[in-house]
Amino acid sequence: MFGLGWPEIAALVVIALLVFGPEKLPQAAAQAGRTLRNLRQMANNAKSDLQSGLGPEFANFDPADLNPKNFVRKHLTADLEDDWNGTPATTTATAPAYVDSYAAEAAGELGYGEIPPYDSEAT
């Protein structure tokens, strides 16, 4: 959960035993459990209040989706999941975009691989 292995957990138990003593350790552990339970309850209440306050259009809202790692993963793979039909979907990042050469010339845009004009008097 926090990247702790058995040796680290054993070291924490020994330190807790030394700090609190064998008489107060069960009371401290019970207090820590109650505090953790209260914090989880407060977080769940805040989440449900947020979802009820946002209304029915946000019924599927999950605050964990606001984590940047989850947000990017969700939006990068959404197109692939939506377009999945047995073969991998091509994305605009990997496939070259279609350029209408007539529209590009009319707008003064350069085509793929064209070199822009150089004006020696402008520099």
Rank of each mutant, 00 (worst) to 15 (best):
1 M>A: 09
9 I>L: 15
10 A>N: 08
13 V>T: 03
14 V>S: 03
17 L>W: 14
17 L>P: 02
19 V>F: 08
20 F>I: 02
20 F>Q: 01
21 G>A: 00
22 P>L: 07
24 K>G: 01
25 L>H: 00
27 Q>L: 07
29 A>G: 08
29 A>K: 06
33 G>D: 14
34 R>P: 06
36 L>T: 04
39 L>N: 05
41 Q>D: 09
42 M>T: 11
42 M>G: 08
44 N>C: 09
45 N>D: 12
46 A>W: 07
46 A>L: 06
47 K>T: 07
53 G>T: 04
53 G>K: 06
55 G>K: 02
57 E>L: 11
65 D>H: 08
66 L>M: 07
73 R>T: 13
74 K>P: 07
75 H>I: 15
76 L>R: 15
78 A>H: 14
78 A>V: 15
83 D>V: 07
86 G>S: 05
86 G>W: 03
87 T>N: 08
87 T>D: 09
87 T>A: 06
89 A>F: 09
92 T>N: 09
99 V>D: 06
102 Y>E: 15
104 A>K: 00
104 A>I: 00
107 A>I: 01
108 G>Y: 00
108 G>L: 00
108 G>T: 01
110 L>G: 07
110 L>R: 07
112 Y>A: 10
113 G>E: 10
115 I>A: 10
117 P>L: 04
119 D>Q: 10
